[in-house]
Write a protein that binds this DNA or RNA. Sequence first.
DNA 1: TAGATTGTTAATCGATTAACAATC
DNA 2: TAGATTGTTAATCGATTAACAATC
Lengths: 206, 206
Amino acid sequence: MADRLTVGVAARLSRYLQVLTQARKMGKVRISSQEIAEYTNINATQIRRDLSAFGKFGKRGVGYNIDSLLGEIRKILRTQGQHNIALIGAGRLGQAIASSPIFAEHGINIAAVFDTDPEKLGRPIGHVTVSEYGRLRESVHDKNIIVGVLAVPAAGAQRAADDLVASGVKIIFNYSEALLETPADVTVHTSNPAVELLYALYFHLT
Amino acid sequence: MADRLTVGVAARLSRYLQVLTQARKMGKVRISSQEIAEYTNINATQIRRDLSAFGKFGKRGVGYNIDSLLGEIRKILRTQGQHNIALIGAGRLGQAIASSPIFAEHGINIAAVFDTDPEKLGRPIGHVTVSEYGRLRESVHDKNIIVGVLAVPAAGAQRAADDLVASGVKIIFNYSEALLETPADVTVHTSNPAVELLYALYFHLT
DNA sequence: TAGATTGTTAATCGATTAACAATC
DNA sequence: TAGATTGTTAATCGATTAACAATC
């Protein structure tokens, strides 16, 4: 397992993680590859194949134990610890992100929230309060943050991305429609629901 | 071109659409496969290959004209018209979605917003006002809506999904962490930033 | 002409899937 | 035992990429 996973395998393992986390919350103890397939739209054979590359996690005739499979996948993806992230933007989207349980559920802690609007300074958001934008660099360093989430309007996105990069952030999640220019060692994930929707529509219409 | 695109090709074409839309807003007229590659992290050869399967859209030594390439890709993806969608949930996330320019930019119109909270009824959100939840079915039918966006807490997501399905919606975008059970002819896209983040972290840490 | 970039080939690699023996 | 579901094989198909001639 010294080899790095391919992009496809890592993406699918993450999806399994999500399904398993939710299935556990629903009180399930075991799950079959067929059930995971129904929730993820990933072929059941491929799921078994993905998992069996790392060990024999299932029981024939029974399925997979959810708790133990969660642990195995977390080990493979090396996401067992807590991760601190910074959120830029305390507007509606920023508030929605900070108050969502989605991150905490996967061990991701929104350690600091920044906004350039002095009006918003000190306001509670999630389980922290809005910090002064000027303290971004200090905070990223002190809290060992490598992920920044941009919840700002497109017009301010590049500026905020530059500041995150200057602070040492290596992974940026961009929720604006702006295209961001970053150094080669920084990864940008732009989330654009409209684009995903057009793509979903194509398969519906054909 | 009678054949349906493969999932991979359709996904990539959607990404190109996003980059072209933004590049045009930035005032660019032409773009090279290399530039698209930098913004999408998709190999430049593959971009040219994807496009050349549908025609000779570029000029050697020059690149692609953004306007005309946009038109070509929209033709291929059959997304030239306006699409009405329904938004369920007028909380922070719902408000953020409704007020974002991201959908309008791609010809997607949030035609109606619903919330079960009577307090929110009639409030302005985006360019519409919050409608009574009970009128969902009527509205979906009248406005020819096939896409529903769920911006509700996980606890209410399945109920809302059931109502959307009963109303005739065929594509659901789920912004909660809940797993949704739907009939086979309904597509669910669950967006989970935490899962994407774990996946991005894996490639950063290895 | 010189430089740039497309369109296309050719080769490789990984993803996908049906089928089924193994076994719980 | 009967039924269910995994783990694995074998075969196919599509994705990916380097390289380069064509040509703007």
